[in-house]
Design a protein around this nucleic acid. Structure first.
Lengths: 143, 143
DNA sequence: CCGCATCCCTTGGGATACTG
DNA sequence: CAGTATCCCAAGGGATGCGG
């Protein structure tokens, strides 16, 4: 109920060509806030890995190869704070902590996969474009 | 033709529960590369603004409020290099340069809007989650 | 095993001044 | 108008060591 207006607003803007357009700009701040969450160096990889199922801390540390312990902790904390990941502590002798996507986190995963698909579809195009741009730049006229 | 395998691969991974799962991890590097492009501080706002139509440099500078001249230039260069934005120079007395989303850029815009919609749908949930988390943290047991 | 704290280096990005 | 170049600071993020 509380989100409904926002959603309708979004769809409205998308179809309205004039007035409410700058509403998108207003949103962009909120969106950037979330995008910075999603788009930072590790969130995507962690969310993606957790998309495979429940994982322990060191399991994640292993399956998300390049990540440092610190950044894994930080990333998980943020995700937990945002309600995208749930953390369950088992007070056993060697401490055991499981992380899992929440339902909210899984809806995000869908969108993440949408972006991933886009990247996979168009990564070649981007690579080509970069190649073209770079070769063009290194020969401006007749160097 | 050259992208087809990648796309099929993506869909395959999404439905396959075991072997090719780590392929996602491999992709994640490429994806992060693009996500860093999309997820940086200004790309989203600029792409979104260009989604409204062709824009001049200072037009963008005005309509993307907080952006500095430097970052607008940088962002546009990257987008141009990646083939997401086209740049047309009109060699007139006061120089005029127009920027516009390429078809490729517009396909990205669709995904960006997908994420924006997700954020608008769930931003309240995230805010609530943060509130809950923060109040929980400042009273661990009985401080 | 989990994860917090510290140190420190690298990068992002703002402000400003200058060119075509 | 549309940039480019320089400077400089603040945030991101890796390495390491300590504590529960």
């Amino acid at each position: 109920m509380h989100v409904k207006e926002s959603v309708d607003g979004a769809r409205a803007v998308r179809s309205t060509p004039s007035a409410a357009l700058k509403a998108r700009d207003e949103m962009t701040c909120q969106v950037r806030d979330i995008l910075n969450r999603v788009g930072d160096k590790w969130t995507l990889a962690v969310v993606n890995e957790l998309g495979h199922g429940r994982r322990r801390f060191n399991e994640l540390k292993r399956t998300v190869p390049g990540i440092s312990q610190r950044m894994l902790t930080v990333t998980l904390r943020v995700l937990e704070r945002d309600g995208l990941v749930s953390r369950s502590v088992h007070p056993v002798v060697p401490p055991r902590v499981d992380y899992e996507l929440t339902p909210l986190g899984r809806t995000l995963l869908e969108r993440v996969w949408g972006l991933i698909d886009w990247v996979l579809e168009h990564h070649d195009d981007i690579d080509e474009a970069r190649g073209r741009y770079d070769t063009q730049q290194e020969t401006p006229s007749g160097l």
